[in-house]
Nucleic acid binder design. Structure first.
Lengths: 192, 192
DNA sequence: TAAGTTTCAAACCGTTCGGTTAGTAATACT
DNA sequence: AGTATTACTAACCGAACGGTTTGAAACTTA
């Protein structure tokens, strides 16, 4: 019983995600958003709330369309070392895609300075813990199958760190170095 | 033949470095600087130039007092795997210090969004290349001494990446995880 | 077609940003 | 003591920030 929206909110949210992904939270101004999304200032606010709320929605969107699909090999299929190897193989492929050239939105938000609001980090801590739990499960399975001589905790922390590093290498050094490092890491894990 | 400065420029530069280190370039406002350094707005400008110039001086200061000392084990003393091991051992100790809790100023500047000016990254590329060259020299020496079965380039890229990761882990997960990961990485390298 | 509802564009809000411009206070040299 | 030089304080600048208000335009329903 009223005027319909002249844009698709899902699509605009996606565009907002891409912009935040490129420039970060503080680095993305409202003006930049309304230019990129090509919607009015007021429309942005009435549809998504203020910048803080918008960013929470962006993080949620990122989680569903980017992050969770990456975890799939850790959730289903073979477990143990194979699961992690499959994860890394898939990771290397996906993260070579051009839109991943700016690293990981979750990671860069977590690493942002003290000015960036704590609520974001609180939300994202869940995501990190999730990945950590999945890796632990599979490393423990590997241990139980005698595929692992090193302690599970040490492998876990190092693996988590290396995944962060790979994503960063993608950003700073490009996809060639990324895929080489992924391959190298996969070989390394076999020696654990 | 005139009124002398009421502050020590070196000390103020150091304070500025610590503030930028914590909050990044964009995250540090001029107001924040004059509050932290306890000098007047005009004094800041007349002493250090604008924000851009100040940051270049801060990066230079960081390089001399923080970064270069870390490279020492790669420059002097035994070469080959031992040099890298010594470097990592020293790295783990130094980076456990409280002021390193915010990661590496060089790294976070390099990883900053597109809004941060390119000149900073140009300056810092030299620093990264420097570290890379030192690592390559020592890895090549290790290869020549038959201490290395993996290809030098692969080891080099992975090592560089891991150093970045360690610094990040220091920031996000604290010094305990850092030192555990350093230890783990040192063990890993022995198997290369 | 008229009432009611909601989106739209654009002007506007106070605040903070990086940077500058006076005018005054303090020192050194003659 | 007088003068030149410099650092100092503090007010000020336009631009951009995140966010809000207003009134007209566009649509649905009755």
């Amino acid at each position: 019983m009223a005027r319909p929206l002249s844009f698709d909110p899902k699509q605009k949210l996606h565009q907002a995600m891409l912009l935040f992904w490129r420039n970060g939270y503080e680095g993305t101004s409202i003006n930049a958003l309304i230019n990129e999304l090509e919607i009015n200032r007021f429309s942005l606010y009435s549809q998504f709330g203020d910048k803080h709320q918008l960013y929470l929605k962006v993080l949620e969107h990122y989680n569903t369309v980017v992050y969770q699909p990456l975890l799939e090999p850790l959730r289903n299929g073979p477990i143990g070392k194979t699961a992690i190897d499959n994860y890394l193989e898939n990771f290397g492929k996906k993260v070579s895609a051009p839109h991943a050239a700016h690293g990981c939105l979750i990671q860069s938000t977590m690493m942002a300075g003290e000015n960036v609001e704590v609520e974001f980090k609180e939300v994202l801590t869940k995501r990190v813990k999730e990945l950590r739990a999945l890796l632990r499960t599979n490393l423990q399975a590997a241990k139980d199958q005698n595929q692992l001589s090193m302690p599970v905790k040490e492998c876990l922390d190092f693996t988590l760190m290396t995944i962060n590093a790979l994503i960063m290498a993608r950003k700073s050094q490009g996809k060639e170095v990324l895929s080489q490092n992924v391959k190298f890491f996969r070989k390394t894990i076999q020696n654990w």
